[in-house]
Design a protein around this nucleic acid. Structure first.
Length: 267
DNA sequence: ACCCGTGTTCGCTG
DNA sequence: TCAGCGAACACGGG
């Protein structure tokens, strides 16, 4: 479920699995995940040592020796997994590393991306260049967030989902955040008071860090789909508000479903 | 069988 | 230019 916490989790896994090792080969199957590249474009990465894995918002950048790198976006269903007795069912690429086994980029729905290239070129990709400040690296601070929200009249739900405004939040965490901050999702961004921006700022960090802690909790326990809904209000329309027991309401904003409490989050 | 969806982009309209 | 909307992408789960 890739929003910032899952991408950060992926970054930590990759650091554990491949940083410091040599990338022997990247075996990619042709798929839209590679767009606009082809499996051949991965050839220059072979034999290079992995220097570091960086994350900005939901974007991953794997830096290799010699100025080469790998851009990765998990999309909706992308995941890096260690190979255990054969490839996972929707492997789009296999990264063979020196020393131990291989890592797969698994992605059933293929909304993800895996692009090789010169690091400088990858950083110049429009998608990366236009990203706002990372939500866990200062982007949620009131002094940063406040002016950015003040510059737009869009509903705060829509603005927070915009990766150019602040990078890392998606539908789940915006929903969680607005409930924690007691702000109605349709509030015009520029109408937020200083105090509300402060609450929002705190709420963003709280929901992201809470999700991250749950994933890190048990070493391999990923918050699995199919398990119980671990969120406070996301996908809980119709259930009672955890704070005041008022029935949570479902709302469609910018094409995404939001749950909110009509009592705690007044317009 | 039907509906929904964690993300992003594109085209159309006002 | 901006803002909003719907569709598209491809597949699994409830």
């Amino acid at each position: 479920m890739p929003e910032l916490p899952e991408v950060e989790f992926a970054a930590r896994c990759l650091r554990k699995w491949i940083v410091g090792r040599k990338l022997l080969a990247v075996e990619a199957r042709p798929s839209r995940v590679l767009r606009p590249c082809t499996p051949r474009d991965f050839a220059p990465l072979a034999g290079r040592r992995v220097r570091e894995v960086r994350r900005h918002g939901k974007v991953l950048l794997v830096a290799l020796d010699g100025g080469w790198g790998l851009f990765a976006h998990l999309g909706m269903t992308g995941k890096f997994v260690l190979e255990e007795g054969g490839p996972p069912p929707h492997s789009r690429a296999r990264l063979r590393v020196s020393g131990a086994g291989a890592v797969h980029f698994n992605d059933p729905r293929m909304f993800g991306r895996l692009v090789p290239g010169r690091l400088a070129d990858l950083q110049a990709l429009e998608h990366i260049r236009k990203l706002g400040p990372d939500a866990l690296a200062g982007g949620a601070e009131p002094e940063v967030l406040g002016p950015r929200l003040a510059a737009t009249a869009r509903p705060v739900k829509v603005a927070l989902m915009d990766q150019r405004l602040v990078a890392g939040l998606g539908n789940i965490h915006v929903t969680e955040t607005l409930w924690r901050a007691r702000i109605h999702p349709l509030r015009p961004s520029r109408s937020l008071s200083r105090g509300e921006v402060r609450r929002l700022s705190r709420a963003i960090r709280d929901s992201l860090e809470h999700a991250l802690a749950e994933e890190e909790g048990e070493e391999i326990t990923y918050v699995e789909e199919g398990g119980d809904n671990p969120f406070l209000v996301y996908a809980r329309a119709g259930e009672p508000c955890p704070r005041c027991r008022t029935k949570l309401v479902k709302l469609d904003i910018g094409g995404r479903t939001t749950a909110f409490c009509p009592r705690c989050q007044r317009l």
